[in-house]
Simulated assay, not measured.
Amino acid sequence: MGYKAKFRVWRGDAGKGELKDYTVEVNEGEVVLDVIHRLQATEAPDLAVRWNCKAGKCGSCSAEVNGRPRLMCMTRMSTFEENETVTVTPMRTFPVIRDLVTDVSYNYQKAREVPSFDGGDVKPGEFRMQQVDVERSQEFRKCIECFLCNNTCHVIRDHEENKEHFAGPRFLMRVAELEMHPADVADRRQIAQEEFGLGFCNITKCCTEVCPEHIKITDNALIPMKERVVGRRYDPLVWLGSKIGIVKRDKTKETPKA
């Protein structure tokens, strides 16, 4: 059975905007995105919102619902009280284009900066992996690039000056995925620290908390990556061995998943 819900939605563009109040019908089983679509159909046909699959797999409908970064298509109206005002605002960390749509090009720029997979001289079909090695990085492939983790990361959100030097949890996770892959021969520890700003991360786990795919970004990617960087830079035997070329890395034995 339906009811009338109070919605407060941010309206505006890059110049200025404000929260506007609406009363919209809600039916059983609906999600926030359903209500936003009904609002477009009834009261605000010019409301801008980005969406695609409506199944929690494209990452397009990222926004902040009652101040928490969420996918609108995965946020059920049943989680709110019927008399509760639901506030929907654009992701706070990225510049607003219009209404609920933000400019996330920062993330695509960082994606292009990550060196691609390097398989060395091994030909296709020659490399063999244990299942445990596959699983170490497979978790990270579930990422739908909703960018909620980068949005909630205070290093990006609260410190504009860091954006140039910090890739954010999504792309530090990508670096970690490649670094942990036993078939990838590149050493990504130095660029993680010096080019992508791994040292800025203070492992508050806010990125993990908002991930709709429940990826353990902090525990399984960022912390192990920090351990590898520390091992390379501060373990005197590892440092010396790498300098004179007598230490050969075995990625399969380094910092297993939590």
Rank of each mutant, 00 (worst) to 15 (best):
K205G: 12
A192I: 01
A55D: 11
G241A: 10
S116C: 11
D235K: 02
P69V: 05
G56M: 06
G2Y: 00
K20D: 15
L39H: 07
P95A: 01
V101N: 02
V210I: 06
V210C: 05
V88I: 07
D184T: 08
Y106M: 08
E30C: 02
G197V: 01
R92G: 12
T79E: 13
R128C: 14
N107K: 02
A176D: 05
T93I: 09
C61F: 13
V49G: 00
R189T: 11
K248Y: 03
L39F: 10
M91C: 06
G168M: 12
K142V: 12
V185Q: 10
R70I: 12
A48L: 06
K248N: 04
N202Q: 10
V35E: 10
G120W: 05
I191S: 07
K110Q: 09
D21T: 08
D121P: 14
R170N: 00
T23V: 02
P45V: 03
T75A: 05
M72E: 07
E195L: 10
V175C: 05
D133Q: 11
D187Y: 14
E84W: 09
R76S: 08
E81N: 05
E177F: 09
E135W: 15
W10Q: 02
K123R: 14
E213V: 05
R136Y: 10
A167P: 05
H214I: 09
T208V: 03
V175P: 00
V86E: 11
M74P: 11
R174A: 05
N151I: 13
A192K: 10
S62N: 13
G15T: 13
E30H: 01
E25Y: 02
T23M: 05
K226Y: 13
I244Y: 13
Q40D: 03
E82H: 10
P169Q: 03
K243H: 15
P115H: 07
T42E: 01
W10E: 03
E194W: 01
V88D: 03
E177C: 04
D187I: 15
G59S: 12
P182F: 08
R11A: 03
H181W: 14
D46Q: 14
E179S: 00
V155S: 05
E28T: 01
E209T: 13
V49H: 00
R68W: 04
P115C: 07
V134E: 15
V65C: 08
P236Y: 01
W10M: 05
M1D: 00
R76C: 09
G12I: 15
M72D: 06
T93M: 10
V175M: 04
C153G: 02
V229A: 04
D158P: 13
R98C: 11
V31P: 02
K226N: 07
E177G: 08
E177Q: 01
A186D: 14
I215Y: 03
M180L: 04
M72P: 02
D158G: 14
A192C: 07
F196Q: 08
R50M: 08
G67S: 06
Y22N: 12
K253M: 10
M129E: 14
Q109E: 11
C206K: 13
H214Q: 02
A258L: 15
W239K: 00
G15A: 14
R174I: 13
A55I: 15
I97P: 07
Y22Q: 08
A44T: 01
D21W: 06
V65Q: 11
L222V: 03
Y108A: 15
I215H: 06
Q193W: 06
N83I: 04
S60A: 15
R98D: 11
G241R: 04
A63W: 09
P224I: 08
